[in-house]
Protein backbone atom coordinates (compact mmCIF):
# COMPACT_ATOMS: atom_id res chain seq x y z
CA UNK A 1 0.00 0.00 0.00
CA UNK A 2 2.62 2.43 1.16
CA UNK A 3 4.90 1.26 -1.62
CA UNK A 4 2.28 1.74 -4.24
CA UNK A 5 1.46 5.21 -3.01
CA UNK A 6 5.08 6.15 -3.33
CA UNK A 7 5.29 4.94 -6.87
CA UNK A 8 2.45 6.97 -8.30
CA UNK A 9 3.67 10.23 -9.76
CA UNK A 10 0.98 12.22 -7.99
CA UNK A 11 2.04 11.21 -4.56
CA UNK A 12 5.68 11.68 -5.46
CA UNK A 13 4.71 15.17 -6.45
CA UNK A 14 2.85 15.54 -3.20
CA UNK A 15 5.81 14.34 -1.16
CA UNK A 16 7.99 16.82 -2.97
CA UNK A 17 5.56 19.61 -2.10
CA UNK A 18 5.50 18.37 1.48
CA UNK A 19 9.25 18.48 1.58
CA UNK A 20 9.24 21.97 0.12
CA UNK A 21 6.83 23.05 2.79
CA UNK A 22 8.81 21.49 5.61
CA UNK A 23 10.53 23.78 8.04
CA UNK A 24 14.14 22.92 7.28
CA UNK A 25 13.81 23.26 3.54
CA UNK A 26 11.81 26.45 3.89
CA UNK A 27 14.50 28.13 5.91
CA UNK A 28 16.31 30.55 3.65
CA UNK A 29 19.61 29.59 5.26
CA UNK A 30 19.26 25.97 4.20
CA UNK A 31 20.72 26.21 0.70
CA UNK A 32 23.54 28.56 1.74
CA UNK A 33 24.50 26.04 4.43
CA UNK A 34 24.58 23.29 1.84
CA UNK A 35 26.66 25.57 -0.39
CA UNK A 36 29.15 26.27 2.39
CA UNK A 37 29.40 22.58 3.12
CA UNK A 38 30.13 21.78 -0.53
CA UNK A 39 32.72 24.53 -0.89
CA UNK A 40 34.49 23.47 2.32
CA UNK A 41 34.49 19.86 1.17
CA UNK A 42 36.00 20.88 -2.17
CA UNK A 43 38.69 22.93 -0.46
CA UNK A 44 39.61 20.06 1.85
CA UNK A 45 39.84 17.70 -1.11
CA UNK A 46 41.94 20.11 -3.15
CA UNK A 47 44.33 21.29 -0.49
CA UNK A 48 45.43 19.54 2.66
CA UNK A 49 46.57 22.76 4.31
CA UNK A 50 43.04 24.13 4.32
CA UNK A 51 41.89 22.05 7.26
CA UNK A 52 44.65 23.11 9.66
CA UNK A 53 43.47 24.95 12.77
CA UNK A 54 45.72 27.87 12.01
CA UNK A 55 44.23 28.32 8.58
CA UNK A 56 40.64 28.00 9.74
CA UNK A 57 41.25 30.58 12.46
CA UNK A 58 42.79 32.77 9.83
CA UNK A 59 39.70 32.47 7.65
CA UNK A 60 37.40 33.33 10.55
CA UNK A 61 39.44 36.40 11.42
CA UNK A 62 39.54 37.59 7.84
CA UNK A 63 35.82 37.09 7.57
CA UNK A 64 35.01 38.98 10.75
CA UNK A 65 35.18 42.53 9.33
CA UNK A 66 32.93 41.80 6.37
CA UNK A 67 30.66 39.71 8.56
CA UNK A 68 30.13 42.55 11.03
CA UNK A 69 29.33 45.04 8.26
CA UNK A 70 26.96 42.54 6.70
CA UNK A 71 24.78 42.55 9.83
CA UNK A 72 23.67 46.11 9.16
CA UNK A 73 23.32 45.33 5.48
CA UNK A 74 21.02 42.41 6.31
CA UNK A 75 18.74 44.69 8.31
CA UNK A 76 18.55 47.22 5.49
CA UNK A 77 17.92 44.62 2.80
CA UNK A 78 15.26 42.86 4.90
CA UNK A 79 13.22 46.07 4.92
CA UNK A 80 13.54 46.23 1.15
CA UNK A 81 16.26 48.89 1.26
CA UNK A 82 20.02 48.91 0.91
CA UNK A 83 22.97 50.69 2.54
CA UNK A 84 25.82 51.63 0.22
CA UNK A 85 27.52 53.87 2.77
CA UNK A 86 28.86 51.09 5.02
CA UNK A 87 32.40 50.92 3.59
CA UNK A 88 32.93 54.68 3.79
CA UNK A 89 31.36 54.96 7.24
CA UNK A 90 33.63 52.16 8.41
CA UNK A 91 36.71 54.09 7.22
CA UNK A 92 35.48 57.35 8.75
CA UNK A 93 34.77 55.76 12.14
CA UNK A 94 38.13 53.95 12.07
CA UNK A 95 40.09 57.13 11.37
CA UNK A 96 38.19 59.17 13.95
CA UNK A 97 38.87 56.60 16.66
CA UNK A 98 42.51 56.42 15.60
CA UNK A 99 42.85 60.20 15.47
CA UNK A 100 41.33 60.71 18.90
CA UNK A 101 43.52 57.98 20.40
CA UNK A 102 46.63 59.56 18.95
CA UNK A 103 45.57 62.95 20.30
CA UNK A 104 45.56 61.30 23.70
CA UNK A 105 41.84 61.11 24.39
CA UNK A 106 40.62 58.51 26.83
CA UNK A 107 40.42 55.16 25.04
CA UNK A 108 36.79 54.43 25.88
CA UNK A 109 35.69 57.86 24.71
CA UNK A 110 37.63 57.54 21.45
CA UNK A 111 35.94 54.27 20.61
CA UNK A 112 32.52 55.56 21.63
CA UNK A 113 33.08 58.63 19.46
CA UNK A 114 33.91 56.45 16.46
CA UNK A 115 30.86 54.26 17.01
CA UNK A 116 28.72 57.34 17.64
CA UNK A 117 29.72 58.94 14.36
CA UNK A 118 28.76 55.73 12.57
CA UNK A 119 25.39 55.55 14.32
CA UNK A 120 24.78 59.21 13.53
CA UNK A 121 25.48 58.66 9.87
CA UNK A 122 23.12 55.71 9.88
CA UNK A 123 20.40 57.71 11.62
CA UNK A 124 20.87 60.44 9.01
CA UNK A 125 20.39 57.89 6.25
CA UNK A 126 17.32 56.58 8.03
CA UNK A 127 15.80 60.04 8.47
CA UNK A 128 16.20 60.88 4.80
CA UNK A 129 14.75 57.53 3.75
CA UNK A 130 11.90 57.21 6.24
CA UNK A 131 10.88 60.81 6.88
CA UNK A 132 11.61 62.41 3.54
CA UNK A 133 10.77 59.39 1.45
CA UNK A 134 14.02 59.45 -0.51
CA UNK A 135 15.14 56.19 -2.16
CA UNK A 136 17.67 54.25 -0.03
CA UNK A 137 20.06 53.64 -2.90
CA UNK A 138 20.44 57.37 -3.63
CA UNK A 139 20.56 58.48 0.00
CA UNK A 140 23.26 56.00 0.93
CA UNK A 141 25.21 56.65 -2.27
CA UNK A 142 25.33 60.32 -1.26
CA UNK A 143 26.26 59.59 2.33
CA UNK A 144 28.93 57.19 1.13
CA UNK A 145 30.51 60.08 -0.73
CA UNK A 146 30.11 62.43 2.25
CA UNK A 147 31.60 59.93 4.73
CA UNK A 148 34.52 59.18 2.45
CA UNK A 149 35.15 62.90 1.97
CA UNK A 150 34.98 63.65 5.69
CA UNK A 151 37.44 60.84 6.40
CA UNK A 152 39.89 62.28 3.88
CA UNK A 153 39.45 65.82 5.23
CA UNK A 154 39.98 64.62 8.79
CA UNK A 155 43.22 62.81 7.93
CA UNK A 156 44.35 65.02 5.09
CA UNK A 157 44.41 61.83 3.11
CA UNK A 158 47.21 60.22 5.13
CA UNK A 159 46.87 57.18 7.35
CA UNK A 160 46.99 57.91 11.06
CA UNK A 161 49.57 55.84 12.87
CA UNK A 162 51.21 55.76 16.26
CA UNK A 163 48.30 54.23 18.10
CA UNK A 164 48.88 53.07 21.69
CA UNK A 165 50.06 49.45 21.83
CA UNK A 166 47.23 48.13 23.96
CA UNK A 167 44.75 49.12 21.20
CA UNK A 168 46.01 46.18 19.14
CA UNK A 169 44.08 43.99 21.55
CA UNK A 170 40.77 44.60 19.76
CA UNK A 171 42.02 43.49 16.36
CA UNK A 172 44.75 41.03 17.26
CA UNK A 173 44.27 39.95 20.84
CA UNK A 174 42.64 36.88 22.33
CA UNK A 175 40.03 36.28 25.00
CA UNK A 176 39.84 32.74 26.43
CA UNK A 177 41.89 31.57 23.49
CA UNK A 178 39.55 33.04 20.90
CA UNK A 179 40.69 35.91 18.73
CA UNK A 180 38.94 39.11 19.76
CA UNK A 181 37.57 40.04 16.29
CA UNK A 182 35.97 36.61 16.02
CA UNK A 183 34.46 37.02 19.45
CA UNK A 184 33.14 40.47 18.63
CA UNK A 185 31.64 39.08 15.43
CA UNK A 186 29.91 36.27 17.31
CA UNK A 187 28.49 38.64 19.91
CA UNK A 188 27.16 40.98 17.20
CA UNK A 189 25.49 38.05 15.44
CA UNK A 190 23.99 36.76 18.65
CA UNK A 191 22.50 40.17 19.38
CA UNK A 192 21.26 40.56 15.82
CA UNK A 193 19.68 37.12 15.99
CA UNK A 194 17.91 38.04 19.19
CA UNK A 195 16.64 41.27 17.70
CA UNK A 196 15.47 39.76 14.43
CA UNK A 197 14.09 36.42 15.51
CA UNK A 198 12.99 36.89 19.06
CA UNK A 199 11.83 40.47 19.46
CA UNK A 200 8.93 42.46 18.04
CA UNK A 201 11.25 44.82 16.18
CA UNK A 202 12.48 41.88 14.12
CA UNK A 203 8.94 41.04 13.06
CA UNK A 204 8.37 44.65 12.06
CA UNK A 205 11.56 44.67 9.99
CA UNK A 206 10.53 41.58 8.07
CA UNK A 207 6.99 42.86 7.72
CA UNK A 208 8.10 46.24 6.38
CA UNK A 209 9.98 44.38 3.67
CA UNK A 210 6.88 42.27 3.03
CA UNK A 211 4.31 45.06 2.74
CA UNK A 212 5.03 48.41 4.27
CA UNK A 213 1.54 49.80 3.66
CA UNK A 214 -0.05 46.96 5.57
CA UNK A 215 2.33 47.49 8.46
CA UNK A 216 1.62 51.20 8.58
CA UNK A 217 -2.14 50.75 8.43
CA UNK A 218 -2.05 48.22 11.20
CA UNK A 219 -0.84 51.02 13.38
CA UNK A 220 2.90 50.41 13.53
CA UNK A 221 5.20 53.35 13.12
CA UNK A 222 7.15 51.84 10.25
CA UNK A 223 9.23 54.98 9.79
CA UNK A 224 10.63 54.74 13.29
CA UNK A 225 11.78 51.20 12.65
CA UNK A 226 13.37 52.11 9.33
CA UNK A 227 15.41 54.79 11.06
CA UNK A 228 16.53 52.25 13.65
CA UNK A 229 17.51 49.85 10.87
CA UNK A 230 19.86 52.31 9.19
CA UNK A 231 21.18 53.41 12.56
CA UNK A 232 22.15 49.81 13.24
CA UNK A 233 23.77 49.71 9.78
CA UNK A 234 25.91 52.74 10.61
CA UNK A 235 26.78 51.33 14.01
CA UNK A 236 27.95 47.92 12.78
CA UNK A 237 29.98 49.57 10.02
CA UNK A 238 31.67 51.77 12.61
CA UNK A 239 32.34 48.78 14.84
CA UNK A 240 34.05 47.06 11.92
CA UNK A 241 36.05 50.27 11.43
CA UNK A 242 37.33 50.21 15.01
CA UNK A 243 38.29 46.54 14.68
CA UNK A 244 40.07 47.22 11.39
CA UNK A 245 41.99 50.21 12.78
CA UNK A 246 43.15 48.05 15.62
CA UNK A 247 44.18 45.22 13.36
CA UNK A 248 46.15 47.55 11.09
CA UNK A 249 47.21 49.73 14.05
CA UNK A 250 46.39 52.75 11.92
CA UNK A 251 43.42 54.76 10.75
CA UNK A 252 43.13 54.36 6.99
CA UNK A 253 40.88 56.91 5.25
CA UNK A 254 40.93 54.81 2.09
CA UNK A 255 39.98 51.53 3.75
CA UNK A 256 36.82 49.69 2.86
CA UNK A 257 36.45 50.75 -0.76
CA UNK A 258 34.03 48.26 -2.27
CA UNK A 259 33.20 46.68 1.08
CA UNK A 260 29.52 47.49 0.56
CA UNK A 261 29.57 45.11 -2.40
CA UNK A 262 31.14 42.32 -0.35
CA UNK A 263 28.49 42.88 2.30
CA UNK A 264 25.68 42.73 -0.24
CA UNK A 265 27.25 39.57 -1.64
CA UNK A 266 27.32 37.96 1.80
CA UNK A 267 23.68 38.86 2.44
CA UNK A 268 22.49 37.58 -0.91
CA UNK A 269 24.62 34.43 -0.75
CA UNK A 270 23.04 33.90 2.66
CA UNK A 271 19.64 33.53 1.05
CA UNK A 272 18.13 36.89 1.92
CA UNK A 273 15.80 38.21 -0.75
CA UNK A 274 17.07 41.44 -2.26
CA UNK A 275 13.49 42.74 -2.41
CA UNK A 276 13.06 42.36 1.33
CA UNK A 277 10.87 40.42 3.73
CA UNK A 278 12.72 37.14 3.51
CA UNK A 279 16.06 35.98 4.81
CA UNK A 280 18.01 35.42 7.99
CA UNK A 281 20.98 36.66 9.93
CA UNK A 282 22.38 33.14 10.22
CA UNK A 283 22.27 32.99 6.44
CA UNK A 284 24.36 36.14 6.25
CA UNK A 285 26.99 34.66 8.56
CA UNK A 286 27.08 31.59 6.34
CA UNK A 287 27.29 33.81 3.26
CA UNK A 288 30.19 35.78 4.69
CA UNK A 289 32.01 32.55 5.60
CA UNK A 290 31.36 31.18 2.14
CA UNK A 291 33.03 34.22 0.61
CA UNK A 292 35.91 33.95 3.09
CA UNK A 293 36.50 30.25 2.50
CA UNK A 294 36.40 30.82 -1.22
CA UNK A 295 38.95 33.63 -0.98
CA UNK A 296 41.21 31.65 1.27
CA UNK A 297 40.93 28.44 -0.69
CA UNK A 298 41.57 30.09 -4.02
CA UNK A 299 44.59 31.83 -2.54
CA UNK A 300 45.94 28.54 -1.23
CA UNK A 301 45.42 27.08 -4.68
CA UNK A 302 47.29 30.04 -6.07
CA UNK A 303 44.49 31.05 -8.37
CA UNK A 304 45.17 34.50 -9.80
CA UNK A 305 43.18 37.31 -8.12
CA UNK A 306 41.78 38.27 -11.52
CA UNK A 307 40.29 34.84 -11.99
CA UNK A 308 39.06 34.91 -8.38
CA UNK A 309 36.88 37.92 -9.16
CA UNK A 310 35.26 36.08 -12.05
CA UNK A 311 34.61 33.01 -9.91
CA UNK A 312 33.11 35.09 -7.11
CA UNK A 313 30.78 36.91 -9.48
CA UNK A 314 29.66 33.66 -11.08
CA UNK A 315 28.88 32.16 -7.69
CA UNK A 316 26.75 35.14 -6.68
CA UNK A 317 24.77 34.84 -9.92
CA UNK A 318 24.31 31.13 -9.32
CA UNK A 319 23.12 31.77 -5.76
CA UNK A 320 20.51 34.27 -6.90
CA UNK A 321 19.38 31.94 -9.66
CA UNK A 322 18.86 29.08 -7.23
CA UNK A 323 17.08 31.22 -4.67
CA UNK A 324 14.70 32.52 -7.35
CA UNK A 325 13.77 28.97 -8.24
CA UNK A 326 12.46 28.44 -4.77
CA UNK A 327 9.37 30.51 -5.30
CA UNK A 328 7.66 32.56 -2.70
CA UNK A 329 7.62 30.30 0.34
CA UNK A 330 8.06 32.53 3.32
CA UNK A 331 10.66 31.61 5.85
CA UNK A 332 13.32 32.95 8.07
Amino acid sequence: MQQQALKSPQSMHFLLERYRASKVARSTAFLPAVGLFVVVACMIALNSRFLSFGNLENVARQVSINAIISVGMTFAILTGGIDLSVGAVMALAGTITAGLLVSGLNAGLAIIAGLGVGALFGAGNGLCIARLGMPPIIVTLASMSIARGLGLIYTNGYPISGLPDWFAFIGRGKILGIQTPILIMLVVYALAYLLLQRMPIGRYIYAIGGNEDAVRLSGIDSRKYKIIVYLIGGFTAALAGVVLSSRLMSGQPNAGVGFELDAIAAVVLGGTSISGGRGSIIGTLIGAMLLGVLNNGLNLLEVSPYVQNVIKGAIILLAIFISRQRGTASAR
Binding site: Y206, A207, G210, N211, D213, A214, V215, L217, G277, R278, T328, S330
Partner: peptide, 9 residues
Protein backbone atom coordinates in the same frame (compact mmCIF):
# COMPACT_ATOMS: atom_id res chain seq x y z
CA UNK B 1 -2.19 45.78 -0.92
CA UNK B 2 -3.00 47.42 2.40
CA UNK B 3 -4.11 44.70 4.74
CA UNK B 4 -1.93 41.65 4.43
CA UNK B 5 1.70 40.76 4.21
CA UNK B 6 1.07 38.11 1.62
CA UNK B 7 4.19 35.99 1.85
CA UNK B 8 3.92 35.73 5.63
CA UNK B 9 2.14 33.20 7.79
Amino acid sequence: TEGLILGFS
